[in-house]
Computed example of a mutant assay.
Amino acid sequence: MAYQNNYSYNQGGFNRGFGNNYQRRPNYNNGQMRDNGYQNSYNANNRGPAKKKSGATFKRCEDGTIVVSAWFVKARQLFSVYARPYKGTKEITSKSGKVWLNYFVTMTNKTTMQESKTSALFDAQGSRLYIKDFNIIATKGGRGGYCGTHIKK
């Protein structure tokens, strides 16, 4: 039988001469695993769940149009995105059968208060907004939506 010294790491716990009493155990809340919507991911300092870095909401107006409001954090700067149809918005059907709408987008850097205005494509069936000039996508996916860098498959 081989023994380790008193402060060595042993199967998920510390062996300090007291057997294996100091094992790491999952964090339970009333007998169930804690689910806070962030897949139990913790930041580097173990001070709680990781902070959310983006979000997007899609609201349907009374006239049937959809308005997109989103935000994201990049390089310690907060950006807000507001997209809406404009007077010249047209529906375009692609070869694959998707219906696209062109939207007017206002993107504001809340840290420096710089404002950029551009156009984007809105996928009406998939509820996705593509801002090609900045390579950004806003979707309903995830908890509270996602807005950030668009990565092609």
Rank of each mutant, 00 (worst) to 15 (best):
Gly145Arg: 06
Ile136Pro: 02
Phe134Glu: 03
Val105Pro: 04
Ile131Phe: 02
Ser127Ala: 08
Thr108Tyr: 11
Arg60Leu: 12
Ser69Pro: 09
Asn29Met: 06
Lys87Phe: 13
Cys147Thr: 01
Gly48Phe: 15
Asn109Val: 05
Gly148Phe: 09
Gly12Cys: 05
Asn109Phe: 04
Tyr38Ile: 00
Thr108Ile: 12
Ala2Thr: 06
Ser119Ala: 06
Gly55Trp: 01
Lys132Thr: 01
Ser119Ile: 08
Pro85Ser: 08
Arg34Ala: 13
Phe18His: 14
Lys132Asn: 04
Gly64Asp: 14
Lys95Asn: 09
Thr65Met: 10
Arg34Trp: 14
Asp133Ser: 04
Arg143Glu: 14
Lys95Ile: 15
Asp123Ser: 02
Lys95Met: 11
Gly145His: 00
Gly64Ala: 02
Gln32Ser: 14
Pro49Glu: 08
Tyr82Ser: 13
Arg25Tyr: 07
Leu129Gly: 10
Arg16His: 08
Lys74Ala: 06
Ser96Glu: 08
Tyr38Met: 01
Gly141Cys: 14
Arg34His: 10
Val67Leu: 11
Phe58Arg: 07
Lys52Pro: 10
Ser96Pro: 11
Leu78Thr: 07
Ser54Ala: 03
Ala56Thr: 13
Thr108Trp: 01
Asp123Arg: 02
Asn10His: 10
Gly55Ser: 01
Gly142Glu: 11
Val68Gln: 03
Ala44Gly: 12
Asn46Leu: 13
Thr93Gln: 12
Thr149Gln: 04
His150Ser: 00
Asp63His: 06
Asn27Ala: 12
Asn45Pro: 02
Glu62Gln: 11
Gly141Thr: 13
Asn27Cys: 14
Phe72Cys: 06
Met113Tyr: 15
Gln11Ile: 02
Gly17Gln: 13
Leu129Ser: 10
Gln32Met: 12
Cys147Ala: 08
Cys61Ala: 15
Arg24Lys: 13
Lys53Cys: 12
Ser8Glu: 14
Ala70Pro: 14
Thr111Leu: 09
Lys132Cys: 01
Lys132Met: 00
Ile131Gln: 00
Asn21Gly: 02
Ser94Tyr: 09
Ala75Phe: 13
Gln4Ser: 01
Gly64Arg: 11
Lys74Gln: 10
Thr139Arg: 00
Gly37His: 06
Ser69Gly: 09
Tyr9Gly: 06
Asn29Val: 11
Asn10Ser: 07
Met113His: 14
Ser127Gln: 12
Asn27Lys: 02
Arg47Tyr: 15
Leu129Ala: 09
Gly12His: 00
Phe14Asn: 09
Thr65Leu: 07
Gly126Ala: 05
